[in-house]
């Protein structure tokens, strides 16, 4: 089945199940590293202060566009574990309609060990990545109206 036939929430559940099936931290990190390998890099010349996500000590950059009725999202980080976490967000949100995105409430952080990974104040920004995309999607809807 094509993943895009799943709703964001259904697709998200597959990540949650995958992660929670892996018992220890090392396997969960391996999983995140594995999926991070598929996330395209944002070249350094496009990593600017304007698209840097505030509050992430390791440096997180987010690029968004709205074309043909779909939101395009990509993200990058210097740290691979963070890239793995970002890769879930990008997989879930890239190519969705703005309406799907605004009505989505993320669970992949709160229902997995990722919440512990990013619980320190150094990674506040990471949990705001989805919010930033949702705001962008809401803006896209407003412009359409």
């Amino acid at each position: 089945m094509d993943e895009k036939e799943l709703s964001i929430a259904e697709y998200e559940q597959t990540f949650i199940d995958d992660l929670n099936e892996l018992e220890d931290w090392f396997l969960q990190y391996e999983y995140l590293l594995q999926i991070s390998a598929d996330l395209p890099r944002i070249p350094s010349e496009r990593r600017k202060e304007e698209n840097r996500v505030q509050g992430c000590q390791s440096g997180v950059w987010l690029e968004m566009a709205y074309t043909d009725g779909r939101i395009r999202v990509t993200a990058d980080s210097e740290a691979l574990i963070i890239r793995g976490i970002l890769s879930i967000a990008v997989d879930l949100l890239d190519g969705r309609t703005p309406e799907e995105i605004v009505s989505y409430s993320p669970r992949y952080i709160s229902e997995t060990n990722i919440k512990k990974q990013i619980s320190t104040d150094r990674f506040n920004g990471l949990s705001s990545v989805v919010d930033t995309v949702k705001q962008f999607a809401a803006g896209a809807i407003r412009r359409e109206d």
Partner: peptide, 20 residues
């Protein structure tokens, strides 16, 4: 990246400091 290293080393039960 030091963040990655410290995250994993932590799971070995070892407290190192990472960052600036």
């Amino acid at each position: 990246h030091p963040f990655d290293a410290a995250s994993v080393v932590d799971k070995f039960g070892i407290a190192l400091r990472s960052g600036t």
